[in-house]
């Protein structure tokens, strides 16, 4: 549905996008994930048509749209601040695009009713955006795009304006709506939890490049680089030297470079008989269902370990532990790194 081939973009001397190639299938939800300034929003704006790539091409639904203006691309765009028209009611906002297309009045009414029902805003049709909550405003913005049945839905940091609790709920809601409609969607976010929630596939970006483009479980379980491992979820990236200690304890660990171990993959034993790596608990914190520890190894390396509370009584700061790896297969070697 969307093909971006070798897209480059400069802002002055700033090389914002470097050879970005990405392919999104019909009905797929893809998230561009990265820290601010990594080029994710620029790539989204290129797909929308608000920016034109310096080189490379963009294909939407088998049509080259690289040079087409936004209004001829058949894409819906949800802005970061939603850009709802404050002087129009919810229903008028949603009807705006249909009116611009000179749709018949009865059709407009039916379509607006249908899409407001989809986002559960039927009783707010006559209200002005200002009187709605952030989550409701976001759903209006979504409805306003969906009512035009675009081929592609683009969303720029659509959850930023919401408070933390609502954000999680709205992400689930959005995923359900988008999947129900079956529309192809590209979202932009810097929040890895959001990316994991809403996406079929995630493109992790840094410094204008796509670092890894894969399904959420692949991104989490098989990160392609230290950057990806660190950005998505918490990770211990053990340099080669520290990794060697674990390799003697676990024969199945191989590879020569650094090693990525997720905090939940450590087992800590207070006794000293298992032949694991020795360490000292330097910090402990309750995260709810689990305890999170910082453990200092003999060489000074600090490890982060997450242990479910039903698996083990909390360990005291200062106590000595032996660290073993629960599932050596889940560790990711990063060949060619120190």
């Amino acid at each position: 549905m969307i093909e971006a081939n070798g897209v480059n973009k400069h802002f002055g001397s700033n090389h914002v996008l470097r050879d970005c190639t990405i392919s999104v299938d019909t009905g797929e939800v893809v998230t561009l994930l990265g820290a601010s300034g990594c080029g994710k929003t620029t790539l989204l704006r290129c797909i929308a048509g608000f920016e034109t790539p310096d080189s490379g091409s963009l294909v939407l639904a088998n049509q080259d749209v690289t040079r087409l203006p936004p209004n001829r691309r058949d894409v819906g765009f949800v802005f970061q601040n939603y850009a709802l028209f404050p002087h129009m009611t919810v229903a008028e906002n949603v009807a705006y695009g249909l009116k611009a297309r000179k749709t018949a009045k009865e059709t407009i009414r039916a379509e607006v009713d249908k899409v407001l029902d989809l986002v559960s805003l039927t009783e707010f049709a006559r209200r002005y955006p200002k009187s709605l909550s952030g989550g409701q405003q976001q759903r209006v913005a979504l409805a306003r795009s969906l009512v035009l049945h675009p081929k592609v839905l683009l969303m720029d940091e659509a959850f930023n304006a919401l408070d933390a609790k609502l954000r999680g709920a709205m992400q689930i809601e959005l995923r359900k709506i988008v999947k129900h409609v079956g529309i192809t969607a590209v979202c932009v976010t810097h929040d890895q939890a959001e990316a994991l929630t809403i996406s079929d596939r995630i493109a992790v970006m840094a410094e204008g490049r796509i670092q890894q483009f894969a399904a959420p479980d692949q991104i989490y379980d098989k990160p392609a680089s230290a950057f990806v491992a660190d950005f998505v979820g918490a990770a211990n990236i053990l340099p080669r030297k520290s990794a060697e200690r674990f390799k003697t304890a676990h024969k199945s660990l191989n590879g020569s470079g650094a090693l990525v171990i997720r905090p939940e993959n450590f087992a800590l034993s207070p006794s000293s008989q298992g032949g694991g790596v020795k360490g000292e608990v330097v910090f402990a914190r309750l995260t709810g269902p689990a305890m999170e520890y910082e453990i200092a190894l003999a060489d000074g390396t600090i490890l982060r370990a997450l242990v479910d509370r039903d698996r083990q009584e909390p360990l005291a700061v200062g106590s000595t532990v032996e660290i073993t790896i629960r599932n050596p297969d889940a560790c990711v070697p990063l060949p060619g790194t120190a």
């Binding site: 209004n71 894409v75 802005f79 601040n81 850009a83 028209f85 705006y96 695009g97 306003r144 035009l148």
Partner: peptide, 10 residues
């Protein structure tokens, strides 16, 4: 963004 949204909707 209001104008961009309006133009984007056709």
């Amino acid at each position: 963004n209001m104008e961009a949204a309006s133009l984007g909707m056709g």
